[in-house]
């Protein structure tokens, strides 16, 4: 590893964070849609959804957090694409810096921006009646899973960011990710779904992640679900890292 890697990453991270501070609309836009969804489901549809005892907002929030992250990471692809198009990416690449720092700065920026969005959504959830008996340890576990999930999806977002030929293309990949929670246990228990749909919903990553976070918030035992959730996150992360590193090398060689 290049001896300047950490320093260069820090300098470039400062640059990207300044971008976000100067156009905080990216964080607001990221948080608005999930909040609107939360309002819609809690106050309009939620009354008709049977999730057992407890408030529906408690059931819903984990899935909403996943949607927040899934839409937030598309900004990573967007920002990376703009850097490539504007020529500043090539300027960085032709400078004596650690080349990996350019990507890591974008990834870390995504972590910061998404965690702010998630915090905003959680606060709105609390205002809508979300309550949890989670201990500090439970909260740390929730944060850890969300960080790992964000990291995995961000590296996934790096791929379209590097390869897209238009702004729309760079962010379009996020739509299926935003849609995935709808066919999971995020909004309704999977038991209410017909066979094949239920089979898909039970075995896709969102369900295990959402169930784990929900159990942590409720102070329930997480069982083996947490390992399934972590395995999904780690698996996506490793694959995304490999593919984005390959794309990056091809792009810069």
């Amino acid at each position: 590893m290049n001896r300047h890697f950490l320093g260069d990453t820090a300098v470039l991270l400062g640059r990207s964070l300044r971008h976000i501070a100067r156009s905080p609309d990216t964080i607001i836009t990221t948080a608005v849609t999930p909040i609107a969804m939360m309002l819609l489901f809690v106050y309009v549809l939620g009354g008709a959804i049977q999730t057992g005892s407890g408030r529906y907002v408690n059931y819903l929030l984990p899935g909403i957090l996943i949607i927040t992250i899934a839409s937030g990471i598309s900004y990573t692809a967007y920002r990376l694409f703009l850097d490539l198009q504007g020529g500043i990416f090539e300027r960085f690449q032709s400078m004596p810096i650690a080349r990996a720092a350019v990507l890591w700065a974008h990834v870390l920026t995504s972590m910061v921006a998404n965690l702010i969005s998630v915090a905003v959504v959680v606060l709105v959830g609390v205002a809508m009646g979300f309550r949890t008996g989670a201990s500090v340890l439970d909260w740390l576990a929730v944060a850890g899973i969300l960080v790992l999930f964000t990291l995995a999806l961000t590296w996934l977002a790096v791929i379209p960011g590097l390869t897209a030929t238009s702004v729309d293309g760079a962010s379009a990949f996020a739509y299926p990710l935003i849609f995935l929670p709808f066919i999971s246990s995020a909004f309704v228990p999977t038991a209410s779904m017909p066979g094949p749909v239920r089979a898909f919903a039970d075995n896709q990553p969102v369900t295990s992640i959402v169930n784990t976070i929900r159990n942590l918030f409720a102070g329930q035992p997480v069982g083996t679900g947490i390992w399934t959730a972590l395995a999904w996150c780690a698996g996506i992360l490793v694959l995304a890292l490999l593919f984005s590193a390959r794309t990056y090398r091809r792009r810069t060689a």
Partner: peptide, 27 residues
């Protein structure tokens, strides 16, 4: 150093911040 066909400056940063950014990246 390379100056490409399209002025590769960071539009969100000020002129001064652009220069500082490059100076830092050149250590």
């Amino acid at each position: 150093s390379l100056t490409g066909q399209f002025a590769a400056v960071d539009e969100v940063l000020t002129g001064r911040e652009n220069l500082i950014l490059v100076a830092r990246l050149r250590h």
